[in-house]
Design a protein around this nucleic acid. Structure first.
Length: 877
DNA sequence: TCTGCCACGC
DNA sequence: GACGTACGTGGCAGAC
């Protein structure tokens, strides 16, 4: 077997990790960011390098042999922050658990240990990889030794081979030392020759190769000043070179044999991860080694029901329904369990379906059920003719409301978070992916019984927290009622004109063929246009178009780049067109056809009610919230969405500027409030204020800019984002935002308050008490903090708007019942509601839909709703 | 099976 | 001074 030694500069990596990551805490208040980063890096190295031998070297103590020659060595360095020092013991412990040899040697630095071992290993025919954050180490590069230096972050590593060093600096690895000798190194307080920087040092070394040769050939140095400087500071150059030189003969006591890597002690690593709160790493470990933590579950009694009887039911029940497939619309029910004061009961869907007693209980509003995912439960049962009522709690939604960041995958994770007795995660119980297996009835009934029991028992615990947070109403009066409405919408589905889609598909295919032919001709060869990699080669290598932007894997071929290239080559236009049509074809024609129910010609999306961080819904299988509208070509897709009954119409109503109205209200900004009260065009108004002009003087370009700024405010984009969308410089964009905030001082103040609130409470809230926690608000990492600040400003706006339309949906649904309408609500697309209705109800809809939407909540500005209708979704514009 | 790129909506 | 910058879903390519 190939021998491969990895040598890691422990101090350097720990420092890097510490400064690259925000100051994470575990639940015991210990800082863990450096340990976390270190662990990430270790995992990556072990995975990618698969070393046979590995060692982590640390610096020992403050003074080294270098201080003997130069006592100011590394002087002036900032003291290690205590938040970092306290993490070193954990790093050491972690290395022990990983089974990785670590070593430190008094009087020597980690560099010297690495230099010495790498030399020994080279002589022993090892392949060697050195990992550090310190470029000094690159002097060790050789044919056998590659030096990896961390770039931004910690897991991103730049590899220095002798070739790479030559390319980058024009030097051989050993000359790195000479360079340091000449230019010094401020971070280590190595002096170098005063006045000699990187440029001069490189130039000198090109000519003289080493410091020694340079000093012997001083006469040949061009430039009188430079020559004098070098002459004067000869000794400094020699000293500096000496200081920068890594010794390869440190008196180390560790042998190569001792660095052999024999694998980690899993139990210890799991234990450490748990202590440190590294849950994501724990999960990874679980997948990897299939040793998900030992779960000691409580004993549970469960009756596998042979005959359904009244004795199984009570007033208060936990009711769990298991479906394993993602798409619950036509998936099978694995089993159901009920938990109450009489015990736990397991039954099959077929039993429930055939039982009048069960149906009676299910539809009895007074028999309370605590469930996990009400919508899914209702949909699944309604397919089988069972009408579920009396849902008085939903653990899934409750968990989302308590913290939307818990993308609650399963009940076990929620139970854990609530300190409830442990449950087996579904992934461990059933297995995942291709290995998924439903166990026998004995095991299955117990697993499901535990879940039902957990529902019953978690309910009071979570209600408690919800009440403390003043969020109980949000769950009971908003999310749970909405869940029932969404269940209806999903089950109802939307009719699709399949023939029309297929016809469009055929036409598109022909046009795509033509465009493809044009592209191949212009390119002079065939290639896969859908491959950014291949496309990049054609555009930027073969056709030599200028490269404006790169991605980390190659050339960027995104639309904004292509648009800039459009005038330079005819092929670009064709490619853009190809992309546009290709998207329609693959996503909206083929994609949609794939999910149409063949019996009914309907699509049944699923709204995810517990996913987004702002409180919005999302939609999948198919996603009906991103059907094209902006470009006419794509908008035609909407012609395929039709009413499910003959002669009915599609009725669509949308809020006008709901987010900006919400902002006007929350910020209580005088100008903004007045503008909405006067029903002004808000973008024009913004342009007037930002550019200090009269209404008549607002040009279309001013309005466009104002609109983009408003857009930015609503979505919390950065000055960079704004500059991209307007095609202006970042500075100008920042200036725009600044002008905007000066024009709307109320908004300015609101922005400050939001950030302040996030810092103080750790979260921000919407009008209806929805929360979003933003721990990064205190990050020392500029990006993370800026992002957190924008989140703090934007979430109450977007989230409150989401609250409002959810309220409107509930009100509208009630109103439809009250008015005894046949009208059906079909979709919600963030700020609009889409219905299908019989023509005779059109008149009343034009009255009540805007009415219910506009009065969903009372703000200090009016809400405004526009509506439209027609025979297809396309026509409802 | 996973990741990156790209593109659609709000 | 560089960092990499609303939120979602889905399709395709390419590496494993």
């Amino acid at each position: 077997m190939e021998k491969k030694l990895v040598l890691i500069d422990g101090n350097s990596i720990a420092y890097r990790a510490f400064f690259a990551l925000p100051l994470l805490n575990n639940d015991k208040g210990i800082h863990t960011n450096a340990v976390y980063g270190f662990t990430m890096m270790l995992n990556k190295i072990l995975e990618e390098e698969k070393p046979s031998h590995i060692l982590v070297a640390f610096d020992a103590g403050k003074t080294t042999f270098r201080h003997a020659t130069f006592k100011e060595y590394k002087g002036g360095r900032q003291k290690t922050p205590p938040e970092l020092s306290e993490q070193f013991p954990f790093i050491r412990e972690l290395l022990d658990a990983f089974g990785i040899t670590r070593y430190e040697l008094p009087n020597y630095e980690a560099d010297d240990i690495i230099g010495t071992l790498s030399l020994q290993a080279e002589q022993d025919n090892f392949e060697i990889k050195v990992i550090s954050g310190d470029k000094d180490l690159t002097q060790l590069a050789s044919t056998a030794t590659t030096v990896g230096i961390t770039k931004k972050g910690i897991t991103d590593i730049e590899l220095y081979t002798p070739e790479h060093i030559r390319e980058k600096y024009g030097l051989a690895p050993q000359q790195i030392i000479d360079m340091k000798g000449l230019m010094g190194d401020a971070s280590d307080n190595i002096p170098g020759i005063p006045g000699v920087g990187e440029k001069t040092a490189l130039k000198l070394l090109q000519q003289f190769n080493t410091v020694e040769i340079l000093l012997q050939s001083l006469d040949e140095v061009s430039g009188k000043k430079l020559k004098e400087k070098i002459e004067e500071h000869q000794d400094l150059a020699v000293l500096s070179k000496q200081l920068a030189t890594i010794t390869r003969e440190a008196p180390i006591e560790v042998t190569l044999e001792e660095t052999e890597y024999k694998g980690m002690d899993l139990t210890k690593v799991v234990e450490m991860y748990k202590d440190l709160g590294f849950n994501s790493l724990l999960d990874k470990l679980g997948d990897l080694a299939d040793i998900s933590e030992e779960i000691v579950q409580e004993e549970i009694q469960v009756e596998v029901v042979s005959e359904i009887s009244e004795a199984m039911f009570a007033e208060e029940n936990g009711f769990f329904l298991e479906i394993l497939e993602d798409n619950y619309h036509q998936a099978g029910i694995i089993g159901m369990t009920i938990s109450n004061k009489h015990g736990q009961f397991y039954l099959k869907a077929e039993q429930a379906e055939a039982s009048a007693i069960f149906k009676e209980w299910a539809s009895d509003e007074t028999k309370k059920k605590a469930v996990y995912d009400a919508k899914k439960t209702i949909v699944a049962l309604s397919k089988r003719g069972i009408d579920l009522k009396g849902i008085d709690f939903d653990i899934f939604l409750a968990s989302y409301i308590l913290d939307p960041a818990d993308a609650a995958e399963d009940l076990a994770a929620i139970a854990k978070k609530q300190n409830y007795s442990p449950l087996m995660p579904d992934e461990s119980f059933y297995g995942k992916g291709a290995k998924r297996l439903i166990p026998g009835e004995m095991e299955l009934s117990e697993h499901l019984a535990r879940k039902a029991k957990a529902l019953l028992e978690l309910k009071p615990i979570m209600i408690d927290t919800l009440e403390q947070n003043e969020q109980y109403g949000l769950l009971m009066d908003l999310e749970i009622p909405l869940s029932i409405i969404l269940a209806k919408m999903e089950t109802q589905g939307i009719k699709v004109d399949v023939e029309r889609l297929k016809q469009s598909g055929k036409e598109l295919a022909m046009r795509l063929n033509e465009i493809e032919a044009n592209i191949f001709e212009a390119a002079g060869e065939c290639f896969n246009i859908n491959s950014p990699k291949q496309l990049g080669v054609i555009l930027f290598e073969k056709l030599q178009l200028p490269v404006y932007k790169k991605t980390k894997t190659g050339y960027s071929t995104s639309a904004d780049v292509l648009e800039r290239l459009e005038s330079q080559h005819e092929i670009v236009r064709e490619i853009l067109h190809y992309r546009q049509l290709g998207k329609l074809q693959s996503t909206y024609i083929e994609g949609l056809l794939k999910v149409v129910n063949a019996d009914s010609d309907k699509v049944h999306t699923r709204f995810n009610q517990a996913l987004t961080q702002t409180g919005r819904l999302s939609s999948t299988d198919p996603n009906l919230q991103n059907i094209p509208i902006r470009l006419e070509e794509g908008r035609k897709i909407r012609q395929a969405f039709i009413p499910s009954e003959k002669d009915w119409i599609i009725f669509a109503a949308d809020y006008s500027q709901i987010e900006l109205r919400v902002l006007a209200h929350i910020a209580n900004d005088e100008g903004l409030v007045e503008a909405f009260r006067a029903d002004m065009d808000i973008h024009t108004k913004t342009a007037m204020d930002v550019f200090h002009v009269q209404k008549e003087e607002v040009t279309s370009n001013m309005r466009r800019h104002a609109k983009a700024v408003n857009f930015g405010i609503v979505y919390g984009i950065s000055d960079y984002g704004l500059s991209q969308s307007l095609g202006i410089s970042r500075k100008e964009a920042a200036q725009f935002i600044d002008n905007y905030l000066k024009s709307f001082p109320g908004v300015q103040e609101y922005m400050h308050e939001s950030i302040h609130e996030a810092k103080q409470k750790g979260y921000v809230s919407t009008l209806l008490q929805r929360r979003r926690y933003i721990p990064e608000i205190t990050s020392r990492n500029f990006n993370q903090r800026s992002f957190a600040e924008r989140t703090a400003m934007n979430t109450p706006i977007q989230g409150s708007a989401a609250d409002i339309i959810k309220l409107a949906m509930i009100n509208m649904s009630e109103r439809i019942e009250e008015e005894n309408l046949k009208t059906r609500m079909l979709l919600q697309v963030h700020d609009e509601l889409i219905f299908e209705a019989p023509p005779e109800e059109l008149e009343i809809l034009m009255k009540i839909v805007p009415e219910e939407m506009e009065r969903a909540i009372e703000l200090n500005v009016p809400l405004k709703v526009d509506y439209a209708y027609g025979p297809t979704w396309f026509d409802a514009k």
